[in-house]
Amino acid sequence: MSQYVIPYGKQDISQQDIDAVVEVLKSDFLTQGPKVPAFEAALMAHTGAKHALAVNSATSALHIACLALGLGPGDWLWTTPITFVASANCGLYCGAQVDFVDIDERTYNLCPEKLEQKLRDAKNAGTLPKILVAVHLCGQPCDMKAIHRLSKEYGFRVIEDASHAIGGKYHGVPIGRCEYSDITVFSFHPVKIVTTAEGGAALTNCEQLAAKMELLRSHGITRNEALMKGESHGGWYYQQIDLGYNYRMTELQAALGVSQMQRLEEFVEARHVHAVRYNDLLKELPITLPYQLENTYSGLHLYVIRLKLDAISLTHKEVFDALRGNGIGVNLHYIPVHTQPYYQELGFNNGDFPESERYYSDAISLPMFHGMTTEQQDEVVRVLHEVLKRK
């Protein structure tokens, strides 16, 4: 197998990014300094959300979001099977039970119609969810108006897992403004649209949720005398008033994030140029191209095609292996969470969410990143054409 020449995703680090990190290394603060608030301010300025809490990963952001919304033993969290496991694991971290809602066959996001039917059944069974994690797969937003309407009817809270979606829009509004959710989570992993190396953030318009998440990301400790029991002992004093975690983001990560946010629009626009070109160059192949939900603008973290296996002579695995063997670093996002051994031990079975399993049987993520050249994209297309013609 060839060493991949063209990766499926890649960070874009400029000299400005490097200089920003070096500046922090020369400063007095490597953690808990001014850069984390500056990064949070940049996120609020972009999205319009009232509060942003930067943390060390999107997984951490999901965890403190669930805790802030009061998720615990006896509660249910629902999400989509087609996501990274963290979108479901955050419920288990809180001692809650997890279930899934199958995907829409066009968008690959959680299907509002299937959600509504499952909510009716759950209401009769007394198992309504406390939280729904709506994942914006590939950067395309879910149908948040439909989800919001159902949340009001059935009384659940909504977290947008927008790990793929910074820079995207829903009905003209930046993803992250939380117009139809309680909390939105972003990821800043290196293959994401904006990177802080590792990192994440939780955004909300609720002051109480923001205060709770701020407490939880740093051990449950406060130096705010108004929150303490009894009087302060002095300038050194702090109190642990909750069971929190060490989920803080470093100054180095935040400095990189501040610099990267200045190019967010450029990053997303470049991905859209690549997507339009892919759509044109691949339209005659026996594949299904990505669908775009009306009134949305995707962050385009991923470009996923689906093979029409009945029209080609190779299997899904054979196509995938052939692409990788020819230097095209394709990937598959994602293995349905309910088919993972850990979740099968919790009682889930193959066949539980058939649309998700059909998606998994023929989906492939093609290379998509800001710095991808026309020559690299041409090579992806050339190899894919060649592979799909094989007998």
Rank of each mutant, 00 (worst) to 15 (best):
residue 131 I to L: 13
residue 364 I to F: 04
residue 145 K to S: 11
residue 21 V to T: 04
residue 8 Y to Q: 08
residue 315 T to E: 05
residue 387 V to G: 01
residue 272 H to F: 09
residue 32 Q to H: 15
residue 273 V to Q: 14
residue 71 L to A: 11
residue 178 C to F: 00
residue 231 E to S: 10
residue 200 G to Q: 04
residue 3 Q to R: 12
residue 90 C to H: 02
residue 113 E to V: 09
residue 377 Q to W: 03
residue 207 E to D: 14
residue 194 V to N: 12
residue 359 Y to R: 06
residue 230 G to E: 10
residue 79 T to E: 10
residue 173 V to W: 00
residue 354 P to F: 07
residue 233 H to F: 13
residue 163 S to R: 04
residue 247 Y to N: 06
residue 270 A to N: 07
residue 156 F to M: 11
residue 14 S to R: 12
residue 26 K to D: 11
residue 125 A to T: 09
residue 82 I to P: 00
residue 104 D to F: 02
residue 329 G to E: 14
residue 143 D to A: 15
residue 111 C to E: 12
residue 85 V to I: 14
residue 57 S to M: 03
residue 152 K to W: 01
residue 103 I to K: 01
residue 320 F to N: 02
residue 115 L to D: 01
residue 249 M to F: 01
residue 385 H to N: 11
residue 240 Q to L: 07
residue 96 A to L: 06
residue 5 V to E: 15
residue 377 Q to M: 15
residue 144 M to S: 12
residue 188 F to I: 10
residue 261 M to T: 08
residue 191 V to S: 14
residue 245 Y to K: 02
residue 365 S to D: 15
residue 24 V to I: 11
residue 212 K to E: 15
residue 297 Y to M: 09
residue 288 T to F: 09
residue 44 M to D: 02
residue 138 C to T: 14
residue 279 N to A: 05
residue 68 A to V: 07
residue 248 R to Y: 13
residue 228 M to Y: 06
residue 95 G to Q: 13
residue 29 F to K: 15
residue 164 H to A: 14
residue 297 Y to I: 12
residue 290 P to M: 07
residue 5 V to I: 13
residue 187 S to I: 10
residue 103 I to Q: 03
residue 271 R to A: 09
residue 315 T to K: 01
residue 67 L to V: 02
residue 9 G to C: 00
residue 101 V to Q: 03
residue 38 A to K: 15
residue 117 Q to A: 15
residue 388 L to R: 02
residue 175 I to W: 01
residue 176 G to A: 10
residue 97 Q to Y: 06
residue 299 G to I: 05
residue 290 P to H: 04
residue 204 T to C: 02
residue 269 E to V: 11
residue 354 P to C: 08
residue 15 Q to V: 03
residue 168 G to N: 05
residue 188 F to L: 08
residue 302 L to D: 14
residue 197 A to H: 11
residue 115 L to I: 02
